[in-house]
């Protein structure tokens, strides 16, 4: 057997063993509530066919994209400015560092207070969550630009703003990309948390999204199979978002190895 095939077999052995053990234990337990892998698959097929799951995911995604866009539009220019000007960095950094340790979900109560339980509050949470990784990585990217490249551009007589556009931005792009990827990850986590919390605490309502859907399955019917479908969907969407972003960054930076 080839080495690669052996590796695949090894990799699959544990998940398969765990699934079999879960199924066996579930069958042995004789409980109606006990989730089973086979039931999870059936529930997934149901939720996809009825369109509930795709709709909920789309709802959550639209919020993530909106909040992510807001965060990027503010964080990238601000980060570039902070990274290329010591004065701006010194004065703005205290604010960034003071708010960074406050988890996005902690400001959910304020967001609900200010914007209600709908989409606006969710977008605010996402934007807040994604803002910090993007701004911090942009600053470090802009500060980490090889100083010889800056000198080379200035010996060719380029004005300062032109240098930021033609040297600092492309040189910082890999770091900005890292920030965007981390930001997208936390944004997705934040939206699930926000929707869950809104579902749990703000009396539910029509806020929707995958997080809300999970909570409804818990609170009103205790359908564990369906909850697990949602969990898997959360994981798959996280992977897909990261893969998409990585592809976009690769297309944007053909020079990167």
């Amino acid at each position: 057997m080839s080495d690669a095939a052996l590796r695949v077999m090894r990799g699959l052995s544990l998940p398969i063993a765990l699934l079999i053990a879960w199924q066996a234990a579930g069958l042995a337990a004789h409980s109606v509530r006990m989730p089973l892998p086979t039931h999870v698959v059936a529930a997934a097929a149901d939720l996809v066919r009825s369109g509930e799951l795709p709709l909920a995911i789309l709802q959550s995604l639209s919020r993530v994209f909106a909040g992510f866009a807001v965060a990027s539009v503010i964080a990238i220019p601000l980060g570039l400015l902070m990274g290329s000007s010591r004065g701006v960095e010194r004065n703005v950094d205290p604010l960034v560092e003071s708010f960074r340790p406050i988890a996005a979900i902690a400001i959910l109560p304020l967001a609900i207070l200010w914007l209600g339980t709908g989409t606006a509050a969710a977008v605010m949470i996402v934007a807040y969550a994604a803002f910090f990784p993007i701004v911090i990585n942009t600053v470090s990217g802009a500060k980490g630009v090889n100083s010889t490249l800056l000198r080379a551009a200035s010996t060719m007589g380029l004005p300062r703003l032109r240098i930021i556009r033609t040297v600092v931005v492309p040189a910082a792009l890999p770091a900005i990309g890292v920030g965007l990827r981390i930001g997208m990850g936390v944004a997705w986590t934040a939206i699930v948390a926000a929707e869950l919390a809104v579902g749990a605490k703000a009396g539910g309502g029509g806020s929707g999204g995958i997080g809300q859907m999970m909570f409804v399955f818990y609170a009103y019917s205790i359908e564990l199979n369906r909850i697990i479908v949602c969990m898997v969907a959360v994981g798959l969407v996280a992977l897909a978002l990261d893969a998409l972003l990585r592809l976009a960054l690769r297309l944007l930076m053909p020079w990167a190895r």
Binding site: G11, V192, G211, I228, V234, G235
Partner: peptide, 22 residues
């Protein structure tokens, strides 16, 4: 590493918060 890694990679994208209802 080869035995455990895929399981970890399957679980990791499911954020802790998504486990709350279960």
């Amino acid at each position: 590493g080869e035995v455990v890694d895929p399981t970890i990679e399957v679980l990791r994208p499911i954020s802790g918060i998504a486990w709350i209802p279960l």
